[in-house]
Design a protein around this nucleic acid. Structure first.
Lengths: 90, 90
DNA sequence: TTGATACATCAAAATATTTTGATGTATGAT
DNA sequence: ATCATACATCAAAATATTTTGATGTATCAA
């Protein structure tokens, strides 16, 4: 969740929407530098949001569905339960 | 989305799950300082995630459902469309 | 009208994140 | 074997966020 904090990471996630992308794809599509992309990719990977698959010199990244599903569930629980019931201070 | 980046903000959001809370509630439940809470509240408010309602000396905060709904839709579009279709580099 | 409470705001300090540019590693082509 | 490509990693610098403590404002109670 905390790894959603950077707008470039959201952009990268969006690029992965329709399938696998390599760093070079992201470079072309975003004009970010290679090391910058690798840095953000690393954060997304450590958060478990994406998976990688190496193919020759290329590494293809794609979204993991499960963590996104869990976030949706969290949001659902947040908003469904909220019944605007008042709570007071003391 | 970017305002989800702080773990304390997520905690505050969670506290709002079952209804309105005031800053003093959050203080008791989290042991964070008042100004610290106000700071995070402000970020959440500017992001449109919460609404406030003043009642005497208290200000009650609660979740706005719409932005959460939109995030769910975004996630749905991300994960539903992703067909693992390959894209290549050149 | 004085004092206490609830909260906002501010500037400075502390801390964390991001970017950059250089270097490293593995792969594949020649 | 040599070179180019694709990407990872690193340390330093740049930048952004967060925390703190002080002060400000509004409301209510006495």
């Amino acid at each position: 969740m905390v790894s959603f904090s950077d707008p470039f990471r959201l952009e990268i996630i969006d690029l992965m929407m329709d399938g696998e992308v390599c760093v070079c794809d992201i470079m072309k599509l975003t004009k970010l530098s290679q090391s910058r992309i690798s840095y953000h990719i690393k954060i997304l990977k450590e958060a478990g949001l994406i998976s990688d698959r190496q193919e020759g010199r290329w590494v293809y990244y794609s979204l993991n569905k499960e963590p996104f599903f869990l976030i949706k569930e969290w949001i659902t629980s947040l908003t469904d339960y909220s019944s605007n019931r008042k709570r007071c201070c003391e």
